[in-house]
Design a protein around this nucleic acid. Structure first.
Lengths: 261, 261
DNA sequence: CGTTTCCGTCCAATATAATGTACATATGAT
DNA sequence: ATCATATGTACATTATATTGGACGGAAACG
């Protein structure tokens, strides 16, 4: 879990960076951990982690939970996150869009965004199939692994993209390497088409559809996606894309902007 | 706006504390601000604020929004908050409880918690009256101003309560001072009764009902409240209390615990 | 038992972060 | 034009935050 690799080894880390590294790590683990475990797993000095954890506890950013001195993300973060959500009020319309998509297609529908230089599923509505396809919400996934990834970086130049995405993220879960040049070609094609679809490269049975939800500047601030069994996806390709584009167009207006001046 | 008063003047502030002071301040203001404005309004050195803001921007904790270099809470906070919410999964059942309460009583129903040493409304469902009574979600309010406040501190000793609540929070919005001793008496009474109701002391036309939602340890981790017009509140007092206690009992089991071991 | 690992606390050393100050620019009032 | 105010940047100084390592208790293990 070499999550946050530091630039130069041997240097002191800044408290703030270390602190958010701890928070991100807990989010990734999705469970309460002892300070000692955190220190060991993120490779930080124990004394520093204890110091920071205590500081964060005092601020309500972390909370004791799970006993044995274990800590996890705190209530204050919930409040801050709620304020963000309230300001950029996408939740309401987003849920409606996913609901509608799931109704129209019976497939799993997702709303995805970038989390730093990773891809993450923000919200999801599972399809109405006997065997549901679903993914974990809030997990960070390498951008090149996903259809949405092609769209979410399309506003950057090729050079920016390559420096933005960590090199190792081009390695697929099976171990093979994805050619960055091929990835860039797909990004440009997705940009031109206004959508991207492919047989998922992280499994062998799904076909993924992604369309951008654009912000003021016309960038893809988020994506709407469908994850379908391959044969269904190919059979309904045009209709699914129409549904997605329709939903994305509706979302692209009000939602991702601030509610207040 | 002397939000975060520091212990001793003349000392250097810690970066982390300063950073969270900035975040809390933005949440309180509920709008994007320029670094310069933040510095002026929280009384921090401009150079420090610029430094921290840039650091937080790099981490996705803050975001540029609103133009002119203004910043507001960032997406990363949303993700962290969502992880918290997912872990302590109260949202789902909480919404159901509020829905039900609003249905049964036609009054405004609220789910409230402590945010540090303040009271805050986490979720709300407005009543079905011609004139709705509502409050702002996520705003920090002095504990003594609220009915819920009596319950939320009831697990502490008197001494703990008095050192926990800032002195000035005993001053009501009208300017009068609430006697701390009287407040403590009400806390103990609320603890015994398992509820607290009163004519609101922050306005002249509402009656407030609060019951505790208890955690493992039997403490009030949150409260469910009703805010009613005074005459309605007095007329339906018993029924309303029954509804609240029923809802709170349901919530007190699963919801506020962690979902995972 | 003795030994090893795990866990939390304490403390001194020094790399550096927080701050005050100066500088540069733009804007608007007088 | 002149002054005042608001805004962002740059940098040296020093108070201090981060860190490594020592210490001790508790638990696991042979």
């Amino acid at each position: 879990m070499d999550a946050g690799l530091d630039e130069a080894a041997g240097k002191r880390a800044r408290g703030l960076d270390r602190a958010f590294e701890i928070l991100d790590f807990l989010r990734q683990k999705r469970q309460a951990l002892k300070p000692n475990e955190i220190a060991a797993q993120i490779g930080a000095p124990r004394s520093s982690v204890y110091e920071l954890v205590n500081l964060l506890l005092r601020n309500g950013i972390l909370e004791f939970t799970g006993g044995e001195g274990r800590v996890y993300l705190g209530r204050k973060l919930y409040f801050l996150g709620a304020a963000y959500e309230n300001h950029f009020d996408f939740t309401r319309e987003c849920e409606a869009a996913l609901e509608r998509l799931a109704d129209e297609t019976r497939e799993t529908a997702q709303f995805c965004m970038l989390d730093g230089n990773k891809y993450t599923v923000v919200r999801m509505r599972e399809g109405a199939r006997p065997f549901r396809i679903s993914t974990d919400i809030g997990q960070s996934v390498p951008i090149p692994w996903t259809a949405s990834g092609r769209l979410l970086v399309a506003h950057m130049t090729n050079a920016e993209i390559l420096s933005f995405i960590p090199e190792r993220d081009f390695q697929l879960p099976g171990g093979e390497w994805l050619d960055p040049a091929a990835f860039l070609t797909e990004v440009r094609q997705a940009e031109r088409d206004g959508h991207f679809t492919f047989n998922s490269i992280v499994d062998s049975f799904t076909h993924c559809f992604a369309v951008p939800v654009t912000d003021d500047a016309g960038h893809a601030a988020a994506t709407l996606c469908l994850v379908a069994p391959r044969d269904d996806g190919l059979a309904n390709r045009d209709r699914y894309l129409d549904c997605l584009k329709d939903a994305a167009r509706r979302l692209s207006h009000a939602p991702l902007q601030s509610r207040r001046a």
